[in-house]
Design a binder for these strands. Structure first.
Lengths: 103, 103
DNA sequence: ACTTACGGTAAGTCATGACTTACGTAAATG
DNA sequence: CATTTACGTAAGTCATGACTTACCGTAAGT
């Protein structure tokens, strides 16, 4: 149920802002925090949540840590949507046919 | 920014359960509430949120209202993911090349 | 018309979680 | 080896939002 984590994690606005920041390329915690109206520890906490959801990853760079996008998170969410979409369309077709028979 | 609504709306577990219930076909508020451990008004509130996010729609059926999946919501989320994905991959390519030059 | 079934809305309660400050740790720099 | 820089974690505060009960409107059945 990793898509569940992705949904809950991406629901928060500032956490989504952190994620969107990495859309334009990797960045350190400081750099991310400088572009946002929250403290650096807050950013660290958000990054932890994003990591747990497989949405970002980090690699050490001196004393800093360079964060970047990680694909498995979004991939999981996308796959869930596809599956949902297919089911919904199928069942909608069945429903429409039943409705037609009833008139 | 309709994908924002979709994310925030689908983050709640019971609201997601309501949504998933409609995956297998249309249902009334009562039917949905009977399958969940919350009160009927709670379900009504969740359905309102899902409607505002274009995730479900309803049509009157006697005194009841038949709810079903509506595609624009999930479509908006899917499109956002696609765009994000493309940008992230492009910028990751740029970053990888820069990294290569530096050794 | 009266009653019953089905839903939406209001108001109030309570828990979750997002933020802050304070503190501890690890790597570079002098 | 002391200092600085960059992060992560802990503890405590506060607001958001999910739930409940109570109430009101509306359409069908008798």
């Amino acid at each position: 149920m990793t898509y569940v984590n992705v949904l809950t994690v991406l629901a928060d606005p500032t956490r989504r802002a952190v994620f969107e920041r990495l859309r334009s390329g990797p960045a350190t915690v400081q750099q991310i925090a400088d572009g946002l109206p929250v403290s650096r520890p807050a950013v660290s906490q958000h990054l932890k949540a994003l990591r747990d959801a497989d949405l970002v990853r980090h690699e050490p760079q001196g004393t800093a840590r360079l964060y970047s996008i990680h694909t498995p998170g979004l991939r999981a969410l996308r796959d869930w949507i596809e599956g949902f979409w297919d089911d919904a369309l199928d069942n909608f077709k069945v429903y429409a046919e039943e409705k037609n028979e009833h008139r």
